[in-house]
C-alpha cells in the first residue's frame, strides 16, 4: 500500500485504490435559491490497499470513517472521486453504481450484528439471498455452500433454521461475516465489527477474521475506534480527522512513532497504560463544526504545536510510502 498525495494516478495492480474521494451531505439550493447547509463528511481522501492486506481506518465519531466504508461497498455514491479495484473503476462520480457487480467483489460487515439481520427471516433465508441473486446457484449448490459457510465461521449447521433473536451478539456477528463471505468477494469492508461485542466474544470474532483472511487471501478495510484492536489486527493504519486522513503508516511505525499531534493524542488517551491521560489536549477547545469547517488544519484548535500557518492553510498528506502525515509541524 502506498499513501499517495491526492490526485495522483492509480497503479493497475490487484488492489483497492481510492483517489480524491469526496462525500457531501445536504447542500444544493432551496426552492428560493438560498444555499442549504452542507456537511463535508469526506474531503479529498486517497489511499491504497494491497491484496491480502488489512488496512485499519481509525478515528473518532463523526470523522467520516463509516461514510468511506459505505461508499466503498456502494451503499452511498461519492460526490466526486474514484474507487478502483484491480485497476477497474468500482465507482466514479456521475455514473450509476452497479450494485450487483460491486457486491460480487467487495462486501460489508456491519457494526450491529443483530440489526443487520432481518428479524423475520431465518438464517437460511438471509444467507441464501446472495447465493441466489449474486451467484445464481441451484438448490443443490446452495445447500452445499450453506453448510460450507457455517463451517467457515464455526457455527453448527442446525443454526440455519433459527431466527436472529435466538443468537448472542458474537454468533450473530459470525452470521454477518458468513453473509459477506457468501458472495466470495475479494475485499471485506468491516465497519466496527466488534465494537458491539463483549471483550471475551470480541477476541473470538477477531481470531476468526484473521483465520479467514489467511484461508481465502482476503483484503480487509477494518474500521475501528479501538486502538488495541487495530494494533493487533491491521498491517497498516490510516488516521482520520474531520473527513481527511491526517496520518498513515505501517501499524508498528504509527504506534511507536506517531508524527501527527492528533495521532499522539489518540494514543495518549487510551486508559490504563500507566500514563496520565490526555496531556497536551486543549480539552476546553470547541470541536470543529462539520457544517462550517475551519479554513486551516481542522485540528489546530486542539493542537499544542499550532501556529498561524496551521490556522490559515490546510496541510496536504505528504511523506514516503512508509509514513505520510498531514502536518506542518510533525513530531520528530
Amino acid at each position: 500500500m502506498t499513501a499517495q498525495p491526492t490526485g495522483s494516478t492509480v497503479q493497475a495492480s490487484n488492489h483497492l485504490a481510492v483517489s480524491d474521494l469526496v462525500k457531501q451531505f445536504g447542500g444544493g439550493r432551496s426552492l428560493l435559491g438560498r444555499e442549504l447547509p452542507a456537511v463535508h463528511a469526506v474531503r479529498k481522501l486517497a489511499f491504497h490497499v494491497e491484496a491480502g492486506e488489512i488496512l485499519g481506518i481509525v478515528g473518532e465519531s463523526g470523522c467520516g470513517k463509516s461514510t468511506v466504508a459505505r461508499m466503498l461497498v456502494g451503499l452511498d455514491a461519492p460526490t466526486s472521486g474514484r474507487i478502483e479495484l484491480g485497476g477497474r473503476p468500482l465507482a466514479e462520480s456521475g455514473k450509476p453504481i452497479h450494485q450487483r457487480a460491486l457486491a460480487n467483489r467487495i462486501q460489508y460487515v456491519f457494526q450491529d450484528p443483530l440489526s443487520s439481520l432481518n428479524p423475520r427471516k431465518t438464517i437460511r433465508q438471509t444467507l441464501t439471498a446472495p447465493l441466489v441473486y449474486l451467484k445464481h446457484m441451484n438448490k443443490e449448490q446452495i445447500e452445499t455452500r450453506l453448510k460450507e459457510l457455517m463451517e467457515q465461521v464455526n457455527l453448527r449447521p442446525e443454526f440455519l433454521s433459527r431466527y436472529p433473536h435466538e443468537f448472542s451478539g458474537g454468533q450473530a456477528q459470525r452470521i454477518g461475516v458468513a453473509r459477506a463471505l457468501a458472495a466470495e468477494p475479494e475485499v471485506l469492508v468491516l465497519d466496527e465489527p466488534v465494537s458491539a461485542l463483549d471483550v471475551s466474544v470480541q477476541a473470538q470474532v477477531l481470531n476468526l477474521l484473521q483465520d479467514l483472511r489467511k484461508r481465502f487471501n482476503l483484503t480487509y478495510v477494518f474500521i475501528s475506534h479501538d486502538l488495541g484492536v487495530v494494533r493487533n489486527l491491521c498491517d497498516r493504519v490510516a488516521v482520520m480527522y474531520l473527513g481527511r486522513i491526517v496520518e498513515t503508516a505501517a501499524t508498528d511505525t504509527l504506534f511507536s512513532n506517531p508524527q501527527h499531534h492528533y495521532t499522539r493524542l489518540l494514543l495518549d488517551s487510551v486508559p490504563g497504560t500507566g500514563k496520565q491521560l490526555g496531556v497536551g489536549d486543549q480539552a476546553n477547545a470547541e470541536l470543529p463544526d462539520p457544517l462550517n469547517p475551519p479554513v486551516g488544519c481542522a485540528f489546530a484548535a486542539r493542537c499544542p504545536a499550532a501556529t498561524d500557518l496551521c490556522r490559515q492553510a490546510d496541510p496536504e498528506l505528504e511523506g514516503t510510502d512508509a509514513h505520510a502525515v498531514a502536518c506542518y509541524h510533525p513530531e520528530k
Partner: peptide, 25 residues
C-alpha cells in the same frame, strides 16, 4: 435499518427488498 442495506449487498433489487424484507416487517 441495516438489514435493508445488507439485502442490497446480497444483490436484491428494490422490488425484492420491498416484498421480501420490508413487507414482512
Amino acid at each position: 435499518r441495516e438489514f435493508v442495506d445488507a439485502a442490497r449487498l446480497s444483490g436484491k433489487n428494490h422490488f425484492l427488498i420491498l416484498v421480501t424484507e420490508i413487507l414482512p416487517n
